[in-house]
Amino acid sequence: MSLESIPLSYYLILSAILFGIGLAGVLLRKNAVTILLSVEIMLNAANLNLVAFSRYITPAAASGQIFALFVMAIAAAEVAVGLALVLTIYRNVKSVNLDEFNLFKW
């Protein structure tokens, strides 16, 4: 249906851009929750990649979709644990700003 009109590389490049945006967010934001949001952006970008491959290269097998579903499950788990950690940190130090944490500093 859409194979001719939209080449695979469009999807891939789009997902790369989205992944880059999410990565920049992880590296530049200070709020831990925002960073979790940015991680979700990256995960979704990767998922888009998987589904696109599935459609264009192995349309009959659906294995890429299965991968995407696995990623979603793991992302849900990651969000749950990540938020729990953020809450605990917040409770202990009343802040979720990562630039205030440098206990590993020399």
């Binding site: 990565l23 992880v26 630039d99 944490f101 440098n102 500093k105 020399w106």
Partner: peptide
């Protein structure tokens, strides 16, 4: 070299990148 051990996780993530 010690200067790059800032303790900020985001620094380390950038190094990884």
């Amino acid at each position: 070299l010690r200067q790059i051990q800032t303790g900020y996780v985001q620094n380390y993530a950038l190094y990884m990148l």
